[in-house]
């Protein structure tokens, strides 16, 4: 499903993860440009959610619909939840939290694709 788009999401997430890794090593909390990047990633993920749900409704052949929808909703929710979780964290742990989440996003996107491809 949505091959090139999913690839863009994965690459964007990994680049942001790299950025968080640099902040973590430099012992710094997330800065404003990173938040802008996270906002863009979230926009991509909401697009992915919409596209995925629309594709799911349009598809007539059988596949694991529930799992598919849960992964789509999860991957769209995880970045905002992480942002909320580190709202009061001023240390580099905030960057580490985002690093974890930004590595989870590509895994979830791949799982969405696997569920879509499996019958």
């Amino acid at each position: 499903m949505t091959g090139p788009y999913a690839t863009v999401v994965i690459v964007a997430s990994l680049l942001l993860a790299l950025w968080c890794g640099v902040l973590l090593i430099a012992n710094r909390p997330p800065n404003r440009p990173l938040w802008v990047g996270l906002g863009l990633l979230e926009a991509l993920l909401i697009g992915f959610l919409g596209w995925g749900l629309a594709s799911m409704l349009a598809r007539t052949t059988d596949f694991a619909r529930l799992e598919f929808a849960l992964y789509l909703l999860g991957v769209a929710a995880i970045v905002p939840l992480a942002g909320w979780w580190i709202r009061a964290e001023k240390s580099r742990a905030a960057a580490a939290v985002l690093l974890v989440v930004l590595l989870v996003v590509p895994v979830m996107v791949v799982r969405v694709q696997q569920v879509w491809a499996s019958v």
Binding site: L66, Y71, I78, W85, A93, V97
Partner: peptide, 29 residues
């Protein structure tokens, strides 16, 4: 629940989410 703990809790939350979603769909379907 601060500093490294915040990171640890996120990893726990990811596993809580992943395991719940997985088992929910397994049991339902």
């Amino acid at each position: 629940n601060a500093g490294f703990g915040r990171v640890l809790i996120v990893i726990y939350a990811v596993f809580a989410l992943a395991a719940s979603a997985r088992s929910f769909s397994q049991i339902v379907t």
